[in-house]
Structures are given as structure tokens and as C-alpha cells.
């Protein structure tokens, strides 16, 4: 009976979605739970008190190390003392370049409150990112609301983000709009058979299925194929009287 209880509890506990951000070099969650003896030596050797051992009720396997970027982010020490401290290999010593750590993935999770998405120039997450301009870039897009401004949207790139949590820590909102999530929650996965035509085309140095006929698009005959952007001054055919918009609207402050 007891063993059954323990087994069920264990199965239930490990079935919970892993929301914990593990220290750098941590094995994949399932292997981590097999290797981590919950001794806390990584916690002790973390110079910034970033890491802590979970307590029963934290919703993280009891006694295992994790950190919350919003509270204390990982400072990405060059010598990675937490990994060196781990006696069992739950933190993999193959990781010697902290830039290659993948603790989690930052996700700009709330575009409704992010100040940059509102058209402001907050940029704080971008500025604090230790891998600035690689892990987070500012992508210039047109601001459709004002129709005359740009928006610089913080954009995370998974191939460079270490999941240190600096962005989440420094987000100026009362609740961070950018959050570091475990990869399992942050990322989708393409089907094995999925191929991107343009990637394959570039790799092969040309189309794999021969040249394609490009059907003309009415009114856009002079444009490059696929370019359907609407230029200033373009008036869509309509019966209703049209007021010029954007820079030609005649609006004055």
C-alpha cells in the first residue's frame, strides 16, 4: 500500500510540467531527476545566491535546485561554479562556455502590456541582455495604430538565449511581459518530415522542382512577386469617399 502510494505520488510529481528553471548545464529534466541527489552544493557555490533548493510546496521536485529569474537572475559566471560543484553530473561539466547554457528560453509573453509593443521605447530587456543583439534583437516594424511611427519589438532568438532571466528580472512592468520558460513550455517542434522550401532551395542552389510560373496580380504587375505592400497614396478601389491617411492625412497637432 505504502509503496503504491509512493509510486503514485512520484509519478504524479514527475508528471507535473516542469516550470523550474534549472542551473546551467542541467541535464534534461527526466535525467536530472535521476542524477540530482539534492545536496545543494551548487546552491552553496553560487556567488549571487541565485540558486535555491526547492521546498515541499514549491511545485518543483523537493530539494532540487532552481532559480526564479524575476527574483534573482543568473549572472552567467565565466567559470560556472555551480556546475563545478555538482558531484553527480546532474549539472553537466561538458558545459564550459556559459554562453552555450540553455537554462530556459525568454519569451515575450504579453504583447498587450509590453511597452515596446505599445509603441514606446522601453528596450530594457534588450539593454540588459548579456547576449544583446543576438539573444534579443529589436525588430523594426510599422506602427499601424499611429500609422506614422515605428515599433521596435524585442524579439528573442532561441539559438542564442541562455535563459539567464536578466530580461525577466528587469522588465519594468509590475508583472514581467517577458518571461523565461523551460524549453518544453516555450518551444514548439516541427514535424520530422517538415522542410522549409526556401531553406532547401538555398541549400540546393536552386529550385528543386524547376522554375515556377508566377501568375500576375492585378494592379501589382510592376511589383516583385509576392510584394503586396500598400504604398502611401495607394487608394483601394471603393465607392465610399476616401480620406487620405498616414502622412498625407493633413492632421496637425
Amino acid at each position: 500500500m505504502l509503496a503504491l502510494g509512493v509510486g503514485l505520488y512520484g509519478a504524479e510529481a514527475s508528471a507535473r510540467p516542469a516550470e523550474a528553471i534549472r542551473p546551467p548545464g542541467a541535464l534534461p529534466e527526466q535525467d536530472f531527476l535521476a542524477a540530482c541527489v539534492r545536496c545543494g552544493l551548487c546552491v552553496r557555490d553560487c556567488p549571487f545566491d541565485t540558486l535555491k533548493l526547492s521546498e515541499l510546496g514549491d511545485n518543483v521536485a523537493t530539494g532540487t535546485p532552481f532559480f526564479e529569474g524575476r527574483k534573482v537572475p543568473c549572472e552567467m559566471c565565466d567559470d560556472i561554479p555551480c556546475v563545478k560543484a555538482c558531484p553527480t553530473g546532474a549539472l553537466d561539466r561538458e558545459l564550459t562556455d556559459i554562453g552555450k547554457a540553455r537554462m530556459g528560453l525568454a519569451v515575450l509573453i504579453d504583447q498587450e502590456t509590453c511597452l515596446n509593443f505599445l509603441g514606446l521605447r522601453c528596450d530594457v530587456c534588450y539593454r540588459v541582455c548579456p547576449v544583446i543583439d543576438q539573444a534579443i534583437t529589436l525588430e523594426l516594424v510599422h506602427n499601424p495604430r499611429s500609422d506614422r511611427h515605428a515599433m521596435l519589438l524585442p524579439t528573442v532568438h532561441s539559438e542564442h538565449c541562455t535563459g539567464c532571466g536578466k530580461c525577466e528580472h528587469s522588465c519594468v512592468l509590475p508583472e514581467a511581459a517577458i518571461k523565461v520558460l523551460p524549453h518544453k513550455l516555450a518551444q514548439g517542434k516541427s514535424a520530422e518530415h517538415y522542410r522549409k522550401g526556401w531553406v532547401e532551395k538555398e541549400a540546393a542552389g536552386g529550385s528543386l522542382i524547376g522554375e515556377q510560373h508566377q501568375l500576375p496580380m492585378r494592379g501589382l504587375e510592376d511589383r516583385k512577386y509576392g510584394d503586396t505592400r500598400v504604398a502611401p497614396g495607394y487608394v483601394p478601389p471603393s465607392d465610399a469617399p476616401v480620406k487620405p491617411g498616414g502622412i498625407d492625412s493633413g492632421w496637425k497637432p
Partner: peptide, 27 residues
């Protein structure tokens, strides 16, 4: 079978010792 250190899900020995040193939570 589960691929994890099974007894650590409940072990009162490590829960007590770790609790005293690192903090109990609900342990």
C-alpha cells in the same frame, strides 16, 4: 522504472536534514 531517485520524493531523513539547512517548505 520511473528513471528518478524514487525514495527522495518522500524520504523524511533528507527532508528533515535538508529542511534544517536549506529551509523546510511543507516538508
Amino acid at each position: 522504472l520511473t528513471g528518478s531517485i524514487a525514495w527522495e520524493w518522500v524520504n523524511p531523513v533528507s527532508m528533515l536534514h535538508r529542511g534544517l539547512i536549506f529551509g523546510f517548505g511543507l516538508s
